[in-house]
């Protein structure tokens, strides 16, 4: 394409730069941005903590349960946590707007809590994590899932073992 026709085309199609911040910025759906954590789905396997190359994810045991923290300022947005998470408890949104003032820098954390609960069977205190029942056959019904979830790890194993499996 010679220069003149290129010039005419550019004149017609307008500037190629985005109008941001006065207009929207190009943001694809699959953009790998800010991490969100859903404590309800978390199995507490802590695989995300192990595969995170930047050590941005930390779990800690507190009197209330297990806390999850992802430091956005340490996160490199690689998405390893989402990829290896067995229960889709971690998601990368396409929110890239992470600019903040210096005063807010310690608030740039995605926080989650997996609370403690009392096991309905033995009464022991245990984490209310999502049960690891992905491979259970046949799949658990909703009531069964809630019953498993209300138990401590030992009683969960017992429950699944004694579960009547129709042959």
């Amino acid at each position: 394409m010679n220069f003149l026709s290129l010039f005419a085309r550019n004149l017609k199609s307008g500037p190629q730069v985005e109008a941001f911040p006065f207009g929207p910025a190009f943001t694809p759906d699959r953009l790998r941005g800010r991490i969100v954590f859903n404590a309800d789905h978390c199995e507490g396997c802590r695989i995300c903590e192990r595969v995170c190359p930047a050590n941005a994810i930390r779990f800690a045991k507190t009197p209330d349960g297990m806390t999850f923290d992802c430091w956005h300022n340490t996160c490199v947005f690689c998405g390893n946590c989402e990829f290896y998470c067995p229960t889709d408890a971690i998601h990368q949104t396409n929110d890239w707007n992470l600019a903040h003032t210096q005063a807010e820098k310690f608030d740039m954390v995605e926080h989650g809590l997996i609370p403690n609960q009392k096991c309905v069977e033995c009464g022991a205190t245990a984490l209310n994590t999502a049960p690891m029942v992905k491979n259970a056959k046949p799949p658990l019904s909703e009531t069964e899932y809630a019953e498993v979830r209300a138990r401590c790890p030992k009683c969960r194993a017992k429950y699944l073992k004694n579960r009547k499996v129709p042959s």
């Binding site: 694809p28 998405g79 396409n94």
Partner: peptide
């Protein structure tokens, strides 16, 4: 670059590979 960003989610560090395949 727009294609790469739309498919992989990042313009440069595309995060496509993992041990045992692609992500």
């Amino acid at each position: 670059q727009d294609t790469i960003e739309s498919i992989f989610g990042n313009r440069q560090d595309i995060g496509a590979m993992c041990i045992g395949g692609v992500r």
